[in-house]
């Protein structure tokens, strides 16, 4: 039992190590607002060499340089928008984890809604079709036959 709990402990600890940001450099801020902005920004910018990681998570040299650049830009008093524009001008919208809505990303943003709408229309049409088709009605003669068959069955029991 003790062994198992140890194993679980190790597994849990390794998960913590995995989830922590790779930023080894300690960035010092006098202004806590700037600090918060810094950590938020580096969490929104994609590392272009190690795609699918933010520059906060990545250990790549470029990610480190970009973190440093964001840091200096914040210290210089640049706004979040200015910093993002700077990155987009160099690395395209690709660098943003939340791409802006424009012509090339319209399908990306509207896609799920369009699919949802299409599915809804399909569903609606199907339901309406089902409601409008008459149920299988039987005439009197058939009805009598059914009853006769049922009675026959009951007599057998």
């Amino acid at each position: 039992m003790k062994k198992i709990s140890k194993v679980i402990q190790v597994i849990l600890l390794s998960m913590i190590a995995y989830g922590s940001p790779a930023s080894v450099n300690i960035y010092e801020f006098e202004d806590p607002v700037k600090k918060e902005r810094f950590y938020q920004l580096i969490d929104e910018l994609r590392c272009t060499v190690c795609q699918n990681q933010t520059i906060a998570e990545s250990n790549a040299g470029l990610a480190k340089d970009l973190r440093n650049r964001v840091y200096t830009m914040i210290q210089e008093g640049k706004t979040d928008k200015e910093i993002k524009t700077f990155m987009v001008e160099r690395f395209t919208d690709f660098v943003l984890y939340k791409p802006p809505v424009n012509n090339s990303t319209l399908l990306l943003w509207a896609g799920p809604a369009i699919l949802m709408l299409a599915a809804f229309i399909f569903l609606l049409l199907n339901i309406r079709k089902r409601l409008s088709t008459p149920t299988n009605e039987i005439d009197e003669q058939q009805h009598k036959r059914v009853q006769a068959l049922l009675e026959q069955e009951n007599n057998h029991d």
Partner: peptide, 13 residues
């Protein structure tokens, strides 16, 4: 050496 001009030019690889 710092890679700063590289960033200005959008160098990533």
């Amino acid at each position: 050496v710092s890679g700063n001009v590289g960033i200005d030019w959008g160098v990533y690889g």
